[in-house]
Write a protein that binds this DNA or RNA. Structure first.
Lengths: 145, 145
DNA sequence: ATCTAACCCTTTGACATCTAACGCTTAGGA
DNA sequence: TCCTAAGCGTTAGATGTCAAAGGGTTAGAT
């Protein structure tokens, strides 16, 4: 009779990411943030970024998109932008005290969410999942047109 | 020294889905389609959908979003919409010959893409990945607020 | 000294997506 | 028979994303 038509793995991945991403964003919005906002905050906290380009790369969005988020975050006082004194092309982005406070609140939400989705999965399961995802990315990158 | 800070699994999933999704869409666009268009086409080919709501659910988007895609697809002659004779609330969506032809072309692209991302993965690997993704979705659904 | 190329960011215009509100149609009850 | 509620799809308005074009700044070559 032929094997049953299974959902392609790519489709399942997309679907899962959409469901998780939505739930994650909901949790962040409830705490006064959003998914891209969280990514900007944690990147600023965890590494030294030289300019907006690097920040955008770390977050995984384009520079134009980052501009919008920084505009919004600056307008509500979460970050400041100022020109680099030695190179006026560069905008230095820095967290304000409010930005820092929001980071701490969101971090709790993120930690709770991570625990929630890993429920019932062993360390080994998570490691294996990470490995499989990495291999998928590598396959796409390998044969990139 | 503490364990090294690993990228949360949710973030890795999102990142992977974004990379794969973009590559997938690029491949479809090169063949004259797009990701949402493909999902509409294959859904129409593979099951009997009673109305647009069902179609939207199958594709994984909202009704309002589907309306846009169907407008576009109808305007280039891929599908037709007509009122159900017995229930004028319902729009029956049907593939045209052009729609069918595009489906066949895109199916080749999709098959090739699936092969490409599975390169080096055994059947068992893929099954395990599917299982892990399913468990993540279940964890989100379980504790949905 | 100036000119050109490169770099950094912003602006513009486009698209996919969502929610909320609306309009048409049908079903069910008074 | 009407009237109200529910169902289906579209429209309007908002957000997040991108590519392409534009403006300011710097570095390097002539």
């Amino acid at each position: 009779m032929g094997r049953p038509v299974r959902e392609p793995i790519g489709r399942q991945l997309t679907r899962t990411a959409k469901i998780l991403g939505r739930a994650f964003d909901d949790a962040l919005v409830a705490a006064g943030g959003s998914q891209p906002m969280w990514l900007v905050l944690i990147t600023l906290k965890s590494r030294q970024v030289a300019n907006q380009r690097e920040l955008a790369d770390a977050v995984g969005i384009r520079g134009a998109t980052l501009t919008h988020h920084l505009n919004a975050m600056e307008s509500v006082g979460l970050v400041t932008r100022r020109r680099h004194p030695d190179n006026r092309r560069v905008h230095l982005v820095e967290l304000t005290a409010e930005g820092d406070a929001l980071f701490l609140r969101l971090r709790e939400v993120v930690t709770a969410f991570d625990r929630r989705i890993r429920d019932g999965l062993s360390e080994e399961d998570v490691a294996r999942l990470g490995d499989l995802l990495t291999r998928l990315r590598a396959n796409v990158a390998d044969q990139a047109s």
